[in-house]
Amino acid sequence: MESGTFYVCRNINNRSGPRTQSRCKVEENARKQRGSRCLVLITVGLGLICVLLLVFIIMLHITITAERDLIKSYKNTVEEFKQTINSLQDNYTDLTQKNLVLETKYKDLTTEKNQFQSNFSSLNQKKLELESRVTSLSDELQKEESKQRNLCGSVCFFISTELMSWSDSRQYCRDRGADLVIINTEEKQRFISSLVSERVWIGLSDREQEGNMKWVDNSTLKQGFWLKGEPNNTDNEDCIELNYNREKLGWSPLNSWNDDQCSAKKKGICEK
């Protein structure tokens, strides 16, 4: 077929000439070739369509699988988030409770601190008062000691600052280079009586032998200045005191000695 011309070839009793039959064969072969090409193109096209369809199916499967995995991963992530949130909520509840406990402890400690501060202020005030009193007493003591230690003429007399037994009072005097006073004259008795305003030990006792009064220098008593009825040795009274008691019956500067238990606590008058 060329230029829109159709040739119809018929084999009718071989009426056509040889040229016409040859032309018809050529035309028929051409038609067969075109048919084969179309079939090939259709086959190729269908193959390509199948390939594309297979690729699409594979891609769709991959996409669906990926989305499924993504959804699964998302669900796992959501579940993890839920667990994390629950854990955080539990931790928050626990921390809230601990915070309440700590706040309660803080309030208690604050109350105790305020109480301690109040007690400290009170104690500090008492401390200041005691320090002031100690200072005052120390000043008075120094004045008294100064007064007592300055009672010196040809000899020096001083009175101990603490209440002690007769033996401890004597040791107090000896530690200071003195001894308990020895009174062997009326003039000295009057002088010593004028120095004291309380009951004090003197250096006389009969501890070694009852009734045998001796001074601390081991000399024997020659003249005594006893209260009326003394010494009476009631309850083993072996040490002698100068009893300053103006209200006592029969008391006078020349009648002021009394025997007492040596363990009794009182000050001692020392002579140096």
Results as ranks from 00 to 15, higher is better:
54 L>T: 08
227 L>T: 15
74 Y>I: 01
205 S>G: 02
265 K>F: 05
169 S>D: 01
18 P>G: 04
54 L>G: 12
245 N>S: 07
223 Q>L: 06
227 L>M: 14
206 D>E: 03
231 P>Q: 13
258 N>K: 09
39 L>K: 10
213 M>F: 15
80 E>D: 14
187 E>W: 03
267 K>F: 09
217 D>C: 15
5 T>D: 12
222 K>E: 10
69 D>S: 07
58 I>P: 00
183 I>C: 08
191 F>Y: 15
136 S>R: 04
59 M>H: 05
46 L>G: 06
255 N>E: 07
111 T>S: 11
241 E>T: 09
42 I>T: 12
124 N>E: 03
231 P>T: 08
116 F>G: 10
272 K>F: 05
117 Q>I: 11
257 W>M: 12
24 C>I: 07
78 V>Y: 08
154 S>E: 04
20 T>H: 14
177 G>L: 00
262 C>V: 10
109 L>S: 08
83 Q>S: 09
90 D>I: 01
202 I>H: 02
130 L>G: 14
7 Y>A: 03
110 T>R: 01
223 Q>E: 09
95 L>G: 10
218 N>S: 12
143 K>T: 15
51 V>R: 00
146 S>L: 01
37 R>I: 14
233 N>W: 15
263 S>N: 13
236 N>D: 03
152 C>A: 06
248 K>P: 01
26 V>L: 12
253 P>S: 04
24 C>L: 13
72 K>S: 05
155 V>R: 01
244 Y>K: 15
106 Y>K: 14
40 V>D: 05
153 G>M: 04
46 L>F: 04
25 K>F: 13
259 D>Q: 04
4 G>Y: 07
247 E>K: 08
80 E>T: 15
5 T>I: 14
181 V>A: 07
105 K>C: 07
141 L>V: 01
222 K>H: 02
179 D>W: 01
167 S>M: 10
179 D>E: 14
162 E>I: 09
189 Q>R: 09
193 S>K: 09
225 F>V: 06
129 E>H: 04
142 Q>W: 02
154 S>R: 08
69 D>I: 11
135 T>I: 04
25 K>V: 03
205 S>D: 09
105 K>L: 13
86 N>S: 12
93 T>C: 00
42 I>E: 13
181 V>W: 00
214 K>E: 13
79 E>A: 13
225 F>D: 05
86 N>C: 06
199 R>D: 11
211 G>Y: 15
144 E>I: 03
110 T>V: 06
47 G>Y: 09
241 E>V: 14
182 I>G: 00
125 Q>L: 07
9 C>P: 06
238 D>C: 07
224 G>V: 06
217 D>T: 02
109 L>G: 03
187 E>G: 03
58 I>D: 10
221 L>K: 10
60 L>D: 07
16 S>A: 10
18 P>H: 06
143 K>W: 08
75 K>T: 12
263 S>V: 13
148 Q>N: 10
233 N>A: 12
76 N>P: 01
264 A>E: 15
64 I>T: 00
215 W>I: 04
102 L>P: 01
